[in-house]
Design a protein around this nucleic acid. Structure first.
Length: 308
DNA sequence: ACCCAGGCATTGG
DNA sequence: CCAATGCATGGG
């Protein structure tokens, strides 16, 4: 049984799916042709989640189904629908982002270059935070390696037509691990401890994502930074890439700071506070998209963080 | 052999 | 409130 989702246009499914986790091909999130697939725990079982584009950028349409699950209860159907809506931010109205940056030549160009790129969000808070902790300070290549090792050791797998898919580990699985277990995968002691404490809190119900959904940004950041290993950088990216907030600018991010200084302050240094103020004033409710489109431009090579 | 990469917690002024 | 320091791995 297929479920249809109609995203707000413009919506570029391939661009959004490829933006996932800032990687092209990886262990959990796969994208091939026009189809996104990942193993996912849904309705008590591990299924292969499929999401495929059936529309165009200006008339978008998504189809979602789980391989080997023919029927849905009404409740499951709406849950599956919300899952896809969250993962691809289908309700974000990027026409408003476009309007917001019409007098900002650089951002207007980036918007044109990547029109239809939505936030790609992690489906679970645990996954969002754990991967962010893994990624702190190290290159994306190293972070990918660490994630792969963790997923292969602790994630459940499903084989469909001879092809194996790994699910991101459940918090319960990591909660049972020791710091030494994770260190042996290459995590630092601090990261290992952070990920394990997080897994234990979530599996004990001490941290519930659904209770946090409606919190104000700053309250949410305060709640998240109370956790070991979660600083402001991680919390802000999590607001964007799990909670789907559109009005966050992670001013502490090295690359984002360099962009703002280079392109909006004649290369002169700015404090984090000044960067945050500039982002709020310039991009306001669409600051998250400004951040994402900067990174998209960086990847595409149209802009750089090098000094001129 | 270095140095750095999408930070964080801790310590010391 | 600000600065310095150690941490993990892989690529340049």
């Amino acid at each position: 049984m297929e479920i249809e989702i109609i995203p707000r246009a413009p919506f570029d499914f391939a661009a959004t799916a490829r933006f996932f986790r800032f990687t092209q091909s990886e262990i959990v999130d796969t994208f091939l042709g026009e189809r996104y697939r990942r193993a996912f725990h849904f309705a008590e079982n591990l299924h292969l989640l499929n999401i495929e584009s059936r529309g165009t950028r200006s008339r978008p349409l998504l189809a979602l189904w789980f391989t080997d699950k023919r029927t849905f209860t009404k409740h499951e159907e709406s849950k599956a629908k919300r899952l896809a809506e969250r993962m691809f931010s289908t309700d974000h109205d990027l026409k408003k982002f476009r309007a917001r940056v019409k007098d900002d030549p650089l951002m207007r160009t980036l918007e044109e270059d990547h029109r239809g790129l939505h936030l790609a969000c992690w489906p679970n808070l645990f996954e969002a935070l754990a991967i962010s902790i893994l990624s702190q300070q190290i290159s994306t290549t190293v972070a990918m390696t660490l994630k792969r090792r963790m997923v292969e050791k602790f994630g459940e797998q499903i084989t469909i037509d001879g092809e194996t898919f790994f699910a991101f580990p459940r918090p319960e699985a990591i909660a049972r691990a020791s710091v030494e277990d994770l260190r042996s995968l290459g995590l630092s002691g601090a990261k290992a401890l952070g990920v394990i404490e997080l897994a234990r809190k979530i599996s004990k119900g001490e941290l519930d994502a659904s209770e946090l959904e409606t919190e104000e940004n700053e309250t949410l950041i305060a709640r998240l930074t109370n956790l070991r290993g979660i600083g402001r950088w991680t919390a802000e990216w999590t607001l964007m890439l799990h909670f789907g907030r559109t009005d966050v600018f992670p001013a502490g991010d090295l690359a984002l700071g360099l962009f703002v200084q280079k392109y909006y302050n004649n290369g002169r240094e700015m404090s984090e506070r000044e960067i945050r103020a500039l982002a709020r004033e310039r991009w306001g409710l669409w600051s998250s998209y400004a951040a994402v489109y900067f990174l998209a431009g960086l990847r595409a090579g149209t802009i750089s963080t090098e000094r001129r």
